[in-house]
């Protein structure tokens, strides 16, 4: 069977067709490129940075709060200025981006796996487990994510692991609800009935038949959730309850620069903010386009 499938040209397979459709929007392509660049920048932060921003021996307090394009005492240029400790902002942003993206992506991947397994299982199993799970989901979603994350962090304390855990707890419910919804819809369809009539095992039906059909909508949600997780983490860190000073994400950098913003030294807050917003918007545009492309309801 699989060799027949292989002979279908890529552009005619669902994934290929979706990709071709995605490419039709120039804005979405640009967003994809920007997202890719942001990812690469975060990945190679240590190679790209002019300075290791957290090696205190490299920092010179004499270079503190210099505006963008200033020369350091040693002669290097600080393209985006420095903070109060003489830290190169460009380097700090690249490192901060890495922390922000890691928290966003890791928390979403875990929430995705956890939420969608629970959701699909609930749809498949039904009964009490299903109604209990949905009760919990509804209850949780009726409170704002920021508030729940805030409470969790008060209880858990600060740190990357803890904020990731908090974001997983906040976001799993979205995946669970969506996965259950589309799994329920798919379950009633004829191809699942057919698979059952063929006496395929439940595991096989779920993984080979149900999952691939539920996947597109989950991917769309995951994209949005990465952006939301990054945004929530930044907000919490800005409020001083997200990450500790030892793990300076973009939100923490912005928070740190806020004090100087009021005295006109805008760059310490401004550029990390721009980096944050570019990342969030690019991911969101990608998510919107993916929704248009992958959402079967909107297709003719």
């Amino acid at each position: 069977m699989s060799d027949i499938a292989l002979r279908v040209p890529f552009r005619d397979r669902p994934l290929g067709r979706s990709l071709a459709e995605y490419r039709e929007s120039p804005g979405a392509v640009a967003a994809f490129v920007v997202t890719l660049l942001v990812l690469l920048a975060a990945l190679f932060a240590s190679q790209l940075s002019p300075q290791d921003p957290y090696d205190l021996s490299k920092l010179d307090l004499m270079d503190g709060t210099l505006p963008p394009m200033s020369k350091s005492l040693a002669g290097a240029t600080y393209a985006l200025g420095t903070d109060e400790q003489g830290r190169d902002m460009l380097s700090a942003i690249l490192y901060g981006l890495r922390i922000s993206l890691t928290v966003g992506v890791v928390s979403t991947v875990i929430a995705f796996a956890l939420g969608s397994s629970l959701g699909i299982y609930a749809a498949y199993r039904g009964g009490r487990f299903d109604s209990f799970l949905m009760r919990v989901v509804d209850l949780q979603l009726s409170f704002p994510a920021l508030l729940i994350a805030l409470v969790l962090l008060v209880v858990l304390g600060q740190g990357m692991g803890k904020i990731t855990l908090a974001l997983v707890i906040v976001h799993w419910a979205y995946f669970a609800r969506a996965a259950r919804g589309s799994a329920l819809a798919e379950r009633g369809k004829e191809y699942i009935e057919a698979a059952r009539a063929l006496r395929l095992s439940d595991v096989r039906i779920v993984f080979r038949h149900l999952l691939p059909n539920v996947m597109p909508s989950l991917i769309v949600i995951a994209t949005t959730m990465v952006a939301r997780a990054i945004s929530t983490e930044a907000t919490l860190s800005f409020l001083g309850i997200g990450l500790p000073i030892t793990e300076p994400s973009l939100g923490l950098l912005i928070s740190n620069g806020f004090r100087y913003l009021l005295s006109g030294k805008y760059w310490i807050s401004f550029y990390p903010g721009i980096a944050l917003v570019i990342a969030i918007i690019a991911i969101n545009i990608m998510g919107d386009r993916l929704r248009d492309v992958l959402n079967p309801r909107l297709k003719k």
Partner: peptide
């Protein structure tokens, strides 16, 4: 735009522009 950017960032930008 308003839907996707973090609220605290928007607040900061407004402070920077209109106050500072």
């Amino acid at each position: 735009f308003g839907f996707s950017v973090p609220a605290f960032w928007l607040g900061l930008m407004m402070v920077m522009l209109f106050s500072v």
